[in-house]
Computed example of a mutant assay.
Amino acid sequence: MDGDTTARLAVLIDADNAPPGIGPALLAEIAKYGTANVKRAYGDWTGTSLRGWKEQLLAQSIQPIQQFAYTTGKNATDSALIIDAMDLLYTGRFDGFCLVSSDSDFTRLAARLRESGLTVYGFGERKTPKPFVSACDKFIYTENLQSPAVPAAAEPKSLASVTTLLRDAVNAASDDDGWAPLAYVGNIIVKQRPDFDPRTYGYAKLSDLVTATSLFETQRRAVGDGKPNVIYVRAGGHVT
């Protein structure tokens, strides 16, 4: 439901495995996909390890869920979050979930939520295990939220690593003349790689990344009725 701000989302944060500094940027990112009707952060709030998150709770209207560490080496926080997620799922009130953690323990939860027809957005650090990343519809690295994208050329190696992905998506979405709506290209890429994000390569938007490769033509087409122009792209190297 990208771009659909009416989607009802449940935001569940594993405070033990998410950096507290992302609070404002995290919710701003989530607002792109829908409305956060539930915002909960799980952890042992009696200690000092979550001090950074405590400062975010009131400011961001996030409900803290207390979970004591009953046994050393066992993560009771994960279990509490998973149980609450299933309870919220069964209410039938939500269109999607935002799971904020770098922990692979939530891989099966993400898969289960998607099996029920809900959209799952994952948020975690780049160290997040690939199985959890792949289990989500879309996965956003928190490093991209903490550091704004730099509108300068990314390293050639970084751009080279994404060129094939872009070409294949454009070919899959193109019409008989080779033109493809850029938004459709982006959707195809995310389905293949949930963690794809132009900010990873130093660009704020997909259109900026495509232009930086110098391998595609781009074209803005008027839609009419006061709607914004639609960007189309095809293999080439000229901008019109």
Score class of each variant (00 low, 15 high):
residue 142 T to I: 12
residue 88 L to Q: 06
residue 12 L to F: 05
residue 185 V to L: 06
residue 196 F to Q: 05
residue 61 S to W: 01
residue 195 D to G: 03
residue 210 V to C: 02
residue 194 P to T: 04
residue 145 L to K: 02
residue 96 G to L: 05
residue 134 S to Y: 04
residue 46 T to L: 12
residue 135 A to K: 12
residue 109 L to D: 03
residue 171 N to Y: 07
residue 45 W to T: 01
residue 175 D to P: 09
residue 88 L to D: 05
residue 35 T to I: 02
residue 169 A to V: 05
residue 20 P to M: 08
residue 110 A to L: 03
residue 188 I to E: 06
residue 213 T to Q: 06
residue 8 R to H: 10
residue 48 T to S: 15
residue 75 N to Q: 12
residue 113 L to K: 00
residue 165 L to E: 04
residue 40 R to C: 03
residue 37 N to K: 12
residue 86 M to Y: 07
residue 82 I to S: 10
residue 86 M to H: 08
residue 220 R to Y: 11
residue 45 W to A: 01
residue 238 H to T: 15
residue 164 T to Q: 12
residue 51 R to E: 07
residue 25 A to D: 10
residue 229 N to W: 07
residue 29 E to R: 15
residue 54 K to L: 10
residue 157 K to L: 14
residue 138 K to R: 15
residue 18 A to K: 02
residue 190 V to M: 01
residue 207 S to M: 06
residue 234 R to L: 06
residue 95 D to M: 08
residue 215 L to Y: 04
residue 48 T to W: 03
residue 150 V to G: 06
residue 53 W to D: 06
residue 23 G to T: 02
residue 28 A to R: 11
residue 130 K to P: 00
residue 197 D to M: 05
residue 146 Q to S: 15
residue 160 A to L: 14
residue 1 M to W: 00
residue 76 A to R: 02
residue 222 A to T: 15
residue 83 I to R: 08
residue 206 L to H: 03
residue 26 L to M: 12
residue 160 A to S: 13
residue 199 R to N: 01
residue 112 R to T: 07
residue 124 G to I: 02
residue 207 S to P: 01
residue 94 F to W: 13
residue 73 G to Y: 04
residue 55 E to K: 11
residue 157 K to T: 14
residue 46 T to S: 15
residue 38 V to E: 11
residue 63 Q to E: 12
residue 117 G to M: 00
residue 85 A to F: 08
residue 77 T to E: 05
residue 75 N to P: 12
residue 239 V to D: 15
residue 118 L to G: 07
residue 229 N to V: 14
residue 82 I to H: 05
residue 66 Q to F: 04
residue 49 S to T: 14
residue 138 K to N: 06
residue 41 A to T: 04
residue 164 T to A: 12
residue 146 Q to A: 15
residue 199 R to W: 00
residue 171 N to A: 15
residue 34 G to N: 04
residue 107 T to Q: 00
residue 43 G to I: 01
residue 3 G to K: 05
residue 28 A to C: 04
residue 100 V to D: 02
